[in-house]
């Protein structure tokens, strides 16, 4: 896998504005949103529901255009009002509700990328996939279909499906939503393990503040719609982390800081929602 000395995947978000339906309803999802994600940095995005976090993900992934501003990947523009680079294997998305192909087995899902890109022979890709599964303790499930697996296992397989392509950036949109607390801790340890094995830029959207601080190098708190950066909280806890750090004073102080910022925005969003209803 990649070596530590050459990590790519620095993302610059510069004054990005996105207006949906500019001719009609003009819904402003993001306004002059700017921040940086360093190469190999684990960045967490939190903010009120519907604030435009997924809009930003779609723009970086190349699923959707932006109205103005610019997004750069390692110094190259990948999205602006003039150009939009299509989705590609350098920016991999793990979806909110999971998007493993139900008609393909676990191995077929994981090997789909390398095979379809003609980067690897099917058999070689299958060997690699088996190795990856084995490494994370899922060696037995290769021939199963996704719907035969628990959602926690499905999630891990989907993350492996992304990682086998060696993307520069991995974007996860609330990937562990709906999992119970125990399953979540397993997922966090899994993510920590694969991240340490080959660090790359992570863009991780969540509502779970514990998850945010436990996993992130920094937590970017977004304002209510239109999304802007409200606050960036660096998390200087050492890596790899273990769950008992959640009891440390440092951790609790960080959580308090994030919570206050999020709470303020949530309140604004709530009031704005009430205004819209009135």
């Amino acid at each position: 896998m990649t070596t530590h000395d050459k990590i790519e995947g620095a993302i610059s978000i510069r004054k990005v504005t996105k207006i949906y339906d500019p001719e009609g309803a003009r819904v402003m999802a993001m306004k002059d949103c700017s921040f940086e994600m360093g190469a190999g940095e684990f960045t967490i995005i939190v903010g009120p529901s519907g604030c435009g976090k997924t809009t930003l993900l779609n723009a970086i992934a190349g699923f959707d255009t932006i109205t103005s501003g610019e997004i750069l990947l390692d110094g190259d523009t990948i999205s602006s009002s003039l150009k939009q680079i299509k989705p590609n294997v350098d920016r991999m998305v793990v979806f909110q509700n999971g998007a493993l192909f139900p008609w393909k087995t676990v191995i077929e899902n994981i090997t789909y990328g390398p095979v379809v890109q003609d980067r690897m022979k099917k058999s070689a890709a299958a060997e690699l996939a088996k190795g990856m599964l084995h490494q994370v303790g899922l060696g037995e499930i290769g021939d199963k279909y996704p719907e035969e697996l628990s959602s926690g296992v499905q999630r891990r397989v989907e993350i492996l499906r992304a990682l086998i392509n060696q993307p520069k950036v991995v974007m996860l949109d609330e990937p562990f939503r709906g999992l119970d607390a125990v399953a979540k801790t397993v997922m966090h340890e899994f993510l920590m393990e694969v991240f340490c094995a080959s660090p790359r830029t992570m863009f991780f959207i969540t509502h779970d503040l514990d998850e945010a601080i436990f996993l992130g190098h920094k937590v970017v708190i977004m304002t209510t719609r239109p999304a802007q950066v409200k606050k960036i909280v660096p998390v200087a806890l050492p890596w790899p982390r273990e769950h008992h750090i959640m009891n440390s004073r440092e951790y609790l102080e960080l959580k308090q800081e994030v919570l206050e910022a999020v709470h303020e925005e949530a309140k604004k969003a709530f009031e704005a929602g009430e205004r819209e209803l009135a």
Binding site: A61, K86, P87, V89
Partner: peptide
């Protein structure tokens, strides 16, 4: 599924 397929190349 379409978006994921596009991401995967």
């Amino acid at each position: 599924y379409f978006l994921a397929a596009r991401c995967l190349g």
